[in-house]
Amino acid sequence: MTHELHDITLVVNGRSHPIRVEARRTLADAIREECGLTGTHLGCEHGVCGACTVLLDDQPVRACLMFAVQADGRAIRTVEGLAHGDTLSPLQKAFIEQHALQCGYCTPGFLMLGTAILEQNPDIGDEELIEILSSNLCRCTGYANILRAVRAAAAAMREEGVA
């Protein structure tokens, strides 16, 4: 009974993935293994590091702290969905230009968190921005360049919006 399989559909970056999983399979594992989207990384599997951050109905959540069955039919966005073809999102570009990544392992989580911030509160103040970014761990950069990248992306988006 405990290994009963559930047929669900994960809608990731607009594409439906009909999958069959045990109830205990985390959303993060299902995205990675069943949907084959390995950009979402696992850094702790206990909800502290934020590497597995994805957007669930446009809200950032930790994919290791949900079961896949709970996300059945919900709109999920992952790092693979940020770029449009060859065109990187302003935040992806800013991460490269501001050297906001080194090993790149935490990067997808920060990109998804940053994307949500830019969508919901592009004029966010520094203090609140730092507070929100403190939810994710990075072991390489010391964070300053990540902050800088989010600000640079916000500025670029403002400019684009004006133009």
Partner: peptide
């Protein structure tokens, strides 16, 4: 609430 976890955990 501003002290409770982080944005991602408060969303859930």
């Amino acid at each position: 609430l501003t002290h409770v976890g982080h944005l991602q955990t408060r969303n859930r």
